[in-house]
Design a protein around this nucleic acid. Structure first.
Lengths: 337, 337
DNA sequence: CGCCTGTTCTAGATCGATCTAGTTGACTGT
DNA sequence: ACAGTCAACTAGATCGATCTAGAACAGGCG
């Protein structure tokens, strides 16, 4: 077996804490104290150990660390690869988790792979909490899960005791969108809903109430839609065939994109002939050629709240439900009536 | 501490292998043999141990298993959350890995989080190989990485010794697309390239050669583009202002989508006034309202090849570069000239 | 009966870290 | 000078699995 004459450790193998300790002339325990920044080491030794660690290229083996300590500092996330907005949130969670001193483990849901399998993988890896984006499991399954590990549901209001939820106030989001359209002089404002998707009911209710409060009850028109482009297109077709409104509130960005495409194909100019508002402020909405006016769910804010919520739960506090205020982002798909 | 009278293990805690062994009346070692399906246990004991494990709801702790054994059976993947086609591949890798007996660990690249950080996380978790989708690291960085762990580069031909590459034959893919258009009677076929994106040069070269070979050298027209919708739109604008071709070959699906949108907005009918071909066969292309004719990179095939390649590398030292043949998927955006 | 072969099973070391319970030695106050 | 306090450090147990080496026991054969 080859050995590095300087360090005495085998070549090719990853250096361990014991190697660092031996090279620095201290015990493993002290080296451990230094590596995790705990108190109990003199500044001089600390410096020396850190320096030898750097020289050897030491990186702690997370498996061993996790095995021993109960605090794994690991957050698990389940998400759907096909959902752009999930991707936005995942990116923000990485940032928020890093700031909070957590590592992140991802587990994708979709296709052949079901949510329960995804969560199981995370648990086996030893995560301290599971952040589930738009969980599709039954309340019962979530409740069972929540007994093993703190569970935070993102984007959907989990009516399960023991499961915390972080989401934004959908009714309020829709209200700001309606107000924006009103201020532009629109009155004939239709809504394409999300069908059976999560949060669809809340958004529809928000739309209806906002319209009524503005004295536009007679203009209320809800067209059945869904969370994907195709459903937006179909809904737009129905809408145009019936009576073209001056503005449409879509269930989400993808649905709005469908409406935009249907408009272009029908030769309608946006926003001159039709104003369109989406929901989510996903990457899609921000693309140069779309520039969709949309209600921002503030992925960064949601992510930060979710990570904070997880951290609180791990400390055995009781956070419960957290509702963020959404914010309207005006871009180029809305204009005067 | 509460104890379950039946099993003798503490309530609330996850049962360990020792608990199972005690409950079944065998040694830990034997229980281990049974759990991992190794030989050396009588059928009767095997059955008994498995049954008690099931009753206790035992799940092996992967951290402990991984710590001890060098075979972690863990594959790491780096990918970009914002790329739909990466999502397709990730889903397929999950399936392929499961069939091959591997677990999958995801690490997202993008935004604040760089590729080297993402890979480091995977290494710390103990993956046996790293599958990097469209790696953006420098060849030097990849080479350094490859000395620590088998690295498989997906979608881009890594010219780094020690790094295996799994990709599809881009020139061939473009060729089949050109032939499809020729058979429909098209002659004025333009190409919107991918700018500085990976594989852009290969596809452009494939286009030029196919055109020349068909005796259509005079029709060769390459418009600078890029891998996103906005760039497709801009290129289409330039193309239509100059002289509208009868068909366009886009660098990828997102670029093709941009061209489609520009066409709709310009009042052009697809495929009557213009045929459009994409590349990737991502989810985007399959959406009902898009139905894009595209060159399929066969995410499932790539994933399977990559996982197989990783498995081979882990066992020994062989594979090198693997090139798959792409396949044209004809949908609704191409028609007779 | 004794020797050999092979199967079934177990004790104990081990992976790389953390954590508990000390030990050591310097410094303080009376 | 002596007990008491505190910071700096260490030995050894520990987490939950795997793995090695060898024990116990069966059956087959001369």
């Amino acid at each position: 077996m080859e050995r590095d004459p300087k360090t005495g450790t085998e070549a090719g193998r990853r250096p361990t804490l014991a190697d660092v300790a031996a090279a620095a002339g201290v015990s493993r325990a002290l080296a451990s104290i230094v590596m995790r920044g705990a108190s109990g080491a003199s500044p001089a030794t600390r410096e020396r150990v850190l320096e030898t660690a750097r020289q050897l290229g030491y990186r702690p083996d997370s498996r061993a660390r996790l095995l021993r300590s109960s605090r794994t500092r690991l957050l698990g996330i389940t998400f759907m690869v096909a959902e752009p907005f999930h991707g936005d949130i995942v990116e923000s969670i990485y940032a928020a988790a890093e700031d909070a001193g957590f590592e992140v483990l991802l587990s994708a849901v979709g296709g052949r792979r079901q949510e329960d399998r995804a969560v199981e993988t995370l648990l086996d890896a030893g995560v301290e909490a599971a952040l589930m984006i738009s969980p599709s499991s039954t309340p019962e399954a979530l409740a069972v899960l929540a007994r093993q590990v703190p569970v935070i549901s993102l984007l959907s209001a989990a009516a399960v005791p023991g499961v915390d939820a972080v989401r934004s106030d959908d009714a309020e989001g829709i209200r700001t969108a309606v107000e924006h359209l009103l201020s532009l002089g629109h009155r004939d404002i239709a809504h394409v809903d999300g069908g059976s998707a999560v949060a669809s009911a809340e958004r529809r209710a928000g739309y209806e109430e906002s319209m009524r409060r503005a004295g536009l009850a007679e203009y209320i028109r809800v067209v059945p839609g869904g969370p994907h482009e195709a459903e937006g297109i179909a809904a737009a077709g129905k809408l145009f065939a019936d009576r073209k409104p001056s503005a449409v509130l879509a269930f989400n960005d993808r649905c709005a994109l469908g409406i935009l495409e249907a408009s272009w194909r029908a030769g309608l100019k946006v926003p001159d002939d039709l104003s369109v508002v989406g929901y989510d402020d996903s990457q899609l909405a921000r693309l140069d050629h779309v520039r969709l006016t949309t209600v921002s769910q503030d992925a960064a804010g949601l992510a930060e709240a979710a990570v904070g919520c997880a951290a609180a739960r791990i400390r055995t506090e009781e956070p419960g439900e957290l509702v963020l205020q959404p914010r309207l982002v005006v871009r180029s798909t809305t204009g005067p009536a």
